[in-house]
């Protein structure tokens, strides 16, 4: 109750509190609340991108608070547990699809932008952030290199399951990961997820060459 009051007081004289409160403090929460309110009046829906995209779920909201620092251990564990619960194994129990299609998905950057439509093919855009096949030199470095992903870690069922889980919902393993939750957020279809996992796991995939 007391905390709520402080938050309200700060909202009223926001400038006085702004930037002074440590992350997680009541004044910090008040600034964040005002920022969210400001965004909701400042953004406009366009095409497939509606305003509900600004409604944060628990993971997004908590991870926004820690900016780029790792969240405290107990918070991280809570996020990882909640996200692990969202990982659904493939319906037929088979993790690996076609690595060739996986490579196409890894190359494609479209989908879900307001410049796209519902018919626009959705990609995983893996190369934007990761090195995968050595043949593709235009790769980003926000995420680690995944070249030789399975060659290093092994091709067995445990690693297949791990690769599936990581692509499906990265926050299940690393709370507040920068990586989109391709399965949990419904970005890629089950078949596409399998194809991407095959790109990482298939011994014939250029990733493991």
């Amino acid at each position: 109750m007391h905390k709520t009051l402080i938050a309200a007081a700060c909202a009223a004289v926001l400038a006085g509190c702004a930037g002074t409160g440590p992350s997680g403090s009541a004044s910090d929460a008040a600034v964040r609340a005002k920022a969210v309110e400001t965004m909701k009046t400042s953004f406009k829906e366009r095409g497939i991108a509606k305003l509900d995209r600004l409604d944060q779920d628990e993971t997004q909201s908590v991870c926004s608070q820690y900016s780029t620092a790792a969240p405290p251990k107990e918070v991280a564990e809570r996020i990882e547990k909640a996200n692990m619960a969202l990982v659904k194994p493939p319906s037929d129990g088979k993790y690996l699809g076609d690595w060739k299609r996986g490579e196409q998905i890894a190359q494609r950057g479209t989908g879900f932008q307001y410049s796209d439509t519902r018919e626009t093919p959705v990609g995983g855009n893996c190369y934007a952030c990761h090195e995968l096949s050595k043949a593709e030199i235009s790769y980003g470095t926000i995420g680690p290199s995944l070249h030789n992903f399975a060659k290093i870690r092994g091709y067995g069922p445990d690693i297949q399951k791990y690769a599936w889980g990581k692509v499906y919902n990265a926050h299940a393993y690393t709370a507040c990961s920068f990586m989109p939750r391709f399965g949990a957020q419904g970005i890629l279809s089950e078949q596409q997820l399998k194809d991407v996992v095959a790109l990482l796991m298939d011994p014939e995939s250029p990733v493991n060459k």
């Binding site: 400038a15 600034v31 920022a35 400001t38 991870c63 926004s64 780029t68 989109p180 419904g186």
Partner: peptide
Amino acid sequence: FALGEKIFYFRGGPYD
């Protein structure tokens, strides 16, 4: 400035 900083760190949308 303070609001801008929070907007900068605001995670949302289907890709987080």
